[in-house]
Design a protein around this nucleic acid. Structure first.
Lengths: 86, 86
DNA sequence: TTGAAATATCAATAATTGATTATATGATTG
DNA sequence: CAATCATATAATCAATTATTGATATTTCAA
């Protein structure tokens, strides 16, 4: 059901760490190594939430050497944030 | 901070019961008495989530006799659902 | 003014979720 | 191949949150 997908999207954005990750990634692709500093959380904590966001289809990742580069994987998220900023 | 308001809005919509309540109210004002049946939840459970949504500024209520009539109290919610339906 | 309908609230329990710490994996470099 | 950097994963614990069943409150009507 589409409702379940929507509820998962809301759940993704309803937690402070994930909300901050998404906001940072809306500015563009980011290396996993810099995200903890950008949002003020630990590496482990950030990594767990990145995994959740990825599992839920909110973000995607690509590898470059030993780095992982994350970016938004859902076009609707930018639209939603645009509405909230009005 | 605006972020906190946004996170609360997402939290409101991230739980199945509340999501269903909001979806029902987007069609128009509803009596508290009919919401449990409309969403398939108990009276007590529905009432608790109505209280949360009200505290968070998502919905509002007016009295008419012994009934309570609930409706959406946040213009952005319809816009968000419009995006999700695309 | 008693009873019933509509609704909220409370207390207990159950379930979910996040934070933390430590460890594991995997790629790169020397 | 050993060391190191980047990152993920696992286990535990704490905290938050939802559900349930019972009861309280309010309003109306007989």
């Amino acid at each position: 059901m589409i409702d379940e997908i929507n509820i998962r999207l809301f759940k993704a954005l309803s937690e402070e760490t994930r909300y901050r990750i998404v906001k940072v990634l809306l500015k563009g692709e980011k290396c996993a190594c810099e995200i903890p500093n950008l949002i003020g959380k630990t590496q482990s904590n950030t990594s767990m939430h990145l995994a959740k966001l990825q599992n839920w289809g909110i973000i995607k990742v690509r590898k470059d050497g030993k780095m992982r580069l994350y970016s938004i994987n859902n076009e609707k998220i930018q639209d939603i944030f645009n509405i909230l900023e009005k």
